[in-house]
């Protein structure tokens, strides 16, 4: 079995230097919004619980502030995203909260909204260019992946064979998470990756592919997954094959929480989806009223929290209760 590892160049956005990048140009005149009272929240498919949480958190926060909210999905498709943003512009949106479909590919669409005077706040996944969105609350995927990777290494006892399930490889989140995992795991020579497959962020695909991977490598004792649905699919396949494996992922959904409590998964990194989304609305509100976001830097990294059997019972809808 040859070892295959598609590693990529380190992304420029990784901490800590990004925090020091220059803030939005203060000289430029503040955007006024499109004229209406509507805030658009545009995310990937609601089939992933995290995006549903984001959309709902925006709705809740914005409606409390007196805005109307329209929730739209771009299905991780740049073309669809461009069309949706066009619609938002035509609709005279007051602001846009966007969990974008691709760091580089989304810049033009967000610039178009800016040209139409509509402020956009990016949440979760970063945008490649600065000065286009008014603020970016970026989920620190790299830190989150590293945090669970540490737990993975410990649970594996620093040795053994493992497989990795990747999300859509065209997306930055997939690359950065994989990078975070490997920057920790690759330090241990006795941890060997024997398979790496794309499962498109999907549970069913992950289940089917994991089943096949286990046929070729029945001695696997760990699975590293790019998101929760894939981890759940992998867990189902391992359970069926009678294999007890250490399974980690990044997301922090309720489904992963339940799997962790049931002993079928080991850990997940919770992204502060709810907090990012409601903060984004507050930023738009403040910006429209005062002409400033209140943050020094455009890009703010929001750290993830590792969820294990120790704290899983406190997790609900991307919020960890005290």
């Amino acid at each position: 079995m040859q070892r295959r590892c598609r590693r990529r160049k380190k992304r420029r956005q990784l901490p800590p230097e990004s925090a020091e990048e220059s803030a939005t140009e203060g000289t430029e005149e503040a955007l006024k919004g499109g004229g209406s009272n509507i805030i658009y929240v545009i995310t990937a498919s609601f089939a992933t619980p995290m995006f549903e949480t984001e959309a709902n958190a925006v709705k809740e926060t914005a409606e409390a502030l007196g805005y109307e909210v329209k929730q739209v999905s771009h299905d991780d498709d740049l073309t669809v995203q461009a069309e949706v943003i066009d619609t938002a512009i035509a609709d005279g949106a007051a602001g846009i909260v966007l969990d974008n479909a691709g760091a580089e590919g989304s810049v033009a669409a967000v610039q178009k909204a800016r040209d139409a005077g509509i402020p956009t706040v990016i949440i979760d996944r970063e945008l490649a260019s600065d000065g286009v969105a008014i603020a970016q609350l970026v989920s620190n995927n790299y830190q989150g992946a590293q945090a669970v990777a540490e737990i993975f290494v410990e649970a594996m006892g620093e040795k053994g064979k493992y497989a990795e399930l990747l999300g859509k490889e065209t997306e930055t989140a997939c690359t950065v998470r994989s990078q975070g995992f490997h920057d920790v795991i690759d330090q241990y020579d006795e941890l060997e990756m024997v398979a790496q497959e794309t499962a498109n962020w999907e549970q069913t695909t992950a289940y089917e592919k994991m089943g096949t991977i286990l046929q070729a490598n029945p001695d696997i004792t760990g699975v590293v997954c790019g998101n929760d649905p894939m981890a759940l699919g992998a867990a189902a396949a391992c359970k069926e094959a009678g294999i007890k494996a250490v399974i980690i992922s990044v997301d922090g959904s309720n489904e992963a929480r339940d799997a962790i409590l049931a002993g079928e998964m080991t850990a997940t990194a919770m992204q502060e989806a709810s907090i990012m989304a409601s903060k984004a609305v507050n930023i738009i509100d403040k910006y429209l009223k005062e002409g400033a976001t209140g943050y020094d830097d455009e890009k703010v990294l929001i750290d993830c929290t590792a969820i294990t059997a120790d704290n899983a019972d406190k997790l609900n809808n991307f919020v960890l209760s005290e």
Binding site: S45, A47, E202, Q203, T204, Y207, P229, L232, G233, A236
Partner: peptide, 11 residues
């Protein structure tokens, strides 16, 4: 098989 129903299944 999965004891889970996913709306994007079969895509």
């Amino acid at each position: 098989q999965l004891t889970a129903a996913n709306p994007s299944s079969g895509d």
